[in-house]
């Protein structure tokens, strides 16, 4: 069979199917309701950081952000407040959400993304998963490129890392973005705190947007955020980098 045969056959597809894809029609693939709040929490990391970090962290001591919210004890009502802000931010940014049928499919998607962005070797890509010992909050950090214990920083590329705090059981989570040079410090601190993993939220950022992969009840999800770079730049600005 030749490739032309495939394209020819597609030319005879039912019109009802083609109608769905008419170029005049723009599609807005909205989030799945069942995981909207989790998606929101993951995808508005930037906005959340902008909103909360300056308020709760003494200037010059940003690691405290992680220490406080990455640990077991969230301040009374703080998680709900942050999630409400996250949901509001999500509604503004209109982020699409992709559902994968299996974890394997999601993993394959992630690999494709890495290849597509010339992150081709394990040496260049590294991610770590941290779980809170009390299972209150699980954390996944994904960042690149990885160089031993240090994360190299390419200022011209605006590559940043996203940290997410997720509590799938409660359907809530929150996170934020930091430049890679700060991630190293953050990671070194976290390694001692976090000891196991139940669930992972996978966060990945590229130049033309922000994308997140995460798992809930054994099903993988991906979230895309349009204009992610601009949002992240806003966060970087908020941290005075």
């Amino acid at each position: 069979m030749k490739t032309e045969n495939i394209l020819d056959a597609m030319g005879a597809l039912e019109e009802s199917m083609l109608m769905e894809s008419l170029p005049q029609k723009r599609r807005n693939f909205r989030p799945l309701a069942a995981v909207a709040i989790l998606a929101a929490a993951l995808c508005v990391t930037a906005g959340a950081a902008y909103l909360i970090a300056p308020a709760i962290v003494p200037k010059g001591d940003r690691q405290m952000v992680q220490m406080e919210y990455g640990g077991v004890d969230w301040p009374e009502g703080k998680a709900e407040e942050l999630l409400a802000r996250a949901e509001k931010q999500r509604a503004v940014s209109k982020m699409p959400l992709t559902r994968f049928d299996s974890l394997e499919e999601m993993e394959a998607d992630l690999e494709l993304e890495l290849l597509d962005n010339d992150l081709r070797t394990q040496e260049q890509c590294h991610y770590q998963v941290f779980g809170n010992a009390n299972s209150r909050i699980d954390i996944f950090v994904y960042y690149y490129p990885w160089d031993g214990n240090a994360v190299s920083h390419d200022a011209g590329d605006l590559r940043v890392s996203i940290m997410a705090y997720v509590n799938p059981a409660a359907g809530e989570g929150i996170g934020w973005v930091l430049p890679q040079k700060k991630v190293t410090e953050w990671t070194q601190t976290s390694v001692y705190q976090m000891t196991h993993l139940d669930t992972a939220a996978r966060i990945y950022c590229d130049k033309d947007g922000a994308q997140a992969w995460f798992v809930k009840d054994g099903i993988g999800y991906e979230v895309s955020c349009r204009g992610g770079v601009q949002v992240m730049q806003m966060v970087l600005d908020s941290f005075h980098y």
Binding site: R26, F29, P96, D116, N117, D208, G209, Q211, S224
Partner: peptide, 10 residues
């Protein structure tokens, strides 16, 4: 569609 290009490719 409101996607990144890499998402469309994948």
């Amino acid at each position: 569609g409101g996607f990144t290009q890499s998402k469309v490719k994948s």
